[in-house]
Design a binder for these strands. Structure first.
Lengths: 229, 229
DNA sequence: CTCAACCGAGAGCACTGCTCTCCCAACCAG
DNA sequence: CTGGTTGGGAGAGCAGTGCTCTCGGTTGAG
C-alpha cells in the first residue's frame, strides 16, 4: 500500500500474498480441512519450514483466509447494494440477501470456512470482527433507512426482550426502532440458515426451484422485520 | 436385537458399539476433525489395523456417528413434542424448536457434524436420509395438524412457486396446504440458522438474552407459516 | 564496514489414515 | 470329531501431516 520500503520488506509482502493466494486456491479446490502447509510450500517452490517465517501456524494462515473471505463477501454485498441504492428498502434487502447467496454459491469452501462449523478447537480472534460485521451493518443500514423514511412496520416488541433490544440498538444499531432490533438480528441468522442448507446439500430433493424459493423466503424475512414489499 | 447368534457375531456387535462409543466420546471432547482412528483403537486396547475390520475407513465411522446424531436429535425433538402433544400447534412448534436448540447446545460437536460444514470431500450417503428427516417430519406434522383443525393461516402463494409447492406437498408433505409448503421448508432452514449462529459464536456480543431471543424468533417463525400464537 | 536481523534449506519428531502380511481361533460341513 | 474356511487381532510399513531446530547465506541499518 505504501512507497517501496526496501527489497526485503517488499519481498515479504509479496511472498505473504503469494502464500495466501496459493492457500486460497487449495481452499477453493479441496476445502479447509485438506489445506496443507506443505502442499502450499511445495507449489510455491519453497520448503515447508520457510513458510513458518510468514505464518506461525496453520491456524494463522486460516485466520488470514477467513478475514479475506469476510471482506470478499462484504464487498460483494456492498457492491450489490450500491447497484440498487435508489430502490425501496425492500428491494435493497432482497438484493443484499441474494448477493450473500450468490457469493456463497460461488465460494462454497470459503463460505464453509466462515459460516460452517468452526475448525476443531479454533476460536476466531478479535481481528476478524470488523470484516465479519460488514454484511450485518449493511442490513442494519437498509432497515434504518426504511425506518427514517417511514416505511417500516416492525412487529410488537415482547416485554421480555425490551432490555435486550435497548442494548442492541445502543451497541450496534443506533437509530433503529426498538421493535426492529431482535427481528433484524434473527433475520440475519436465518438468512445464513437458508444459504447454508442450500449449500450443504440439505435441500437435496427438497427444494428444486432454488432461486424463486430463496427470493420468496428472504422477501418474507424482510417483511418479518417490517419492510413492506 | 436378536437371539445370540454365536460368540463371534455377538462379539462383533459389541465391539462395533464400543468403537462407536469411544469415537463419540472423542467427538464430544475435541470435535470431528480431531477424531483419530488410532486414538480410538488405543483407548480400546486394540491395534489400529484391527479397527478396520469394523469400519472400512474413517469416513464410515463418521457416517455411523452422523446417523446416530440425527437419531439422537430426532428422538429429543419427538420426546419434547410428546410432552406437549395436547397443546396448540403454536406451542408444539416452539417446543420442537426449543428441543432442537437444547440438543444442539448439549451436543455442540455432534450438531456441528451434521449441520455444520460437511467434512472435506465428504458426501452423506443415502443411509443418513431417514434419520435426518425426523425433525422435518415432526414439524410437518405440527403444521398439518394445525391445518386440519383450521388453525392455519398461511401467507399467499407466489405464482412462481406454485409448481414447486405442488411437488413439495406431493413428495413429502401430503395433506399440507400449498401455501404452507415453501414457508415451512424455509422456516425449517431458518431454525438451523438461529441455532448455528448461537452455537458457533456468531451471536457473541450481539445476542445476550439467548433464550427469550430464541423463543421470540421461533414464535415469529411459526407465525410466518400461519400458526397463530 | 560490521553485525544483527532475516529467512531459506534440511533433518527430524510425533502423529495421522490406510494397507498388507502373518497367524491363531472360531465356525461349519462332512 | 475333523479339516478346511473364514473372521479378525498384531505388527510392520508407506506416505502424508504440522511443527521445531539448527545451520548458513543475504540484507540492510548503524
Amino acid at each position: 500500500m505504501n512507497i517501496p520500503q526496501g527489497a526485503r520488506a517488499r519481498a515479504r509482502t509479496e511472498i505473504t500474498a503469494a502464500i495466501k493466494d496459493e492457500a486460497r486456491r487449495q481452499l477453493a479446490a479441496d476445502g479447509a480441512a485438506k489445506l496443507s502447509l506443505r502442499a502450499v510450500a511445495r507449489n510455491l517452490g519453497m520448503v515447508s519450514s520457510a513458510l513458518y517465517r510468514y505464518f506461525p501456524s496453520r491456524d494463522d494462515l486460516l485466520t488470514a483466509l477467513i478475514i479475506d473471505a469476510y471482506d470478499s463477501l462484504g464487498a460483494a454485498a456492498e457492491t450489490a447494494h450500491e447497484a440498487v441504492a435508489d430502490e425501496s428498502p425492500a428491494v435493497r434487502w432482497t438484493a443484499v440477501c441474494e448477493a450473500v447467496r450468490g457469493w456463497a454459491l460461488g465460494h462454497p469452501h470459503e463460505y464453509a470456512l466462515i459460516y460452517g462449523s468452526p475448525v476443531p478447537g479454533y476460536v476466531a480472534p478479535q481481528t476478524t470482527v470488523p470484516a465479519a460485521a460488514r454484511v450485518g451493518l449493511l442490513l442494519i443500514g437498509v432497515v434504518r433507512d426504511a425506518h427514517e423514511r417511514g416505511a417500516l412496520n416492525p412487529p410488537p416488541l415482547p416485554g421480555e426482550l425490551r432490555a435486550e433490544a435497548e442494548r442492541m440498538t445502543a451497541d450496534f444499531a443506533p437509530g433503529l426502532p426498538l421493535e426492529a432490533a431482535a427481528p433484524l438480528v434473527a433475520a440475519w441468522a436465518q438468512l445464513y440458515g437458508l444459504v447454508g442448507f442450500e449449500l450443504f446439500g440439505q435441500f437435496h430433493r427438497v427444494v428444486e426451484a432454488r432461486e424463486p424459493f430463496f427470493r420468496d423466503a428472504v422477501t418474507r424475512l424482510g417483511q418479518s422485520i417490517g419492510l413492506r414489499a
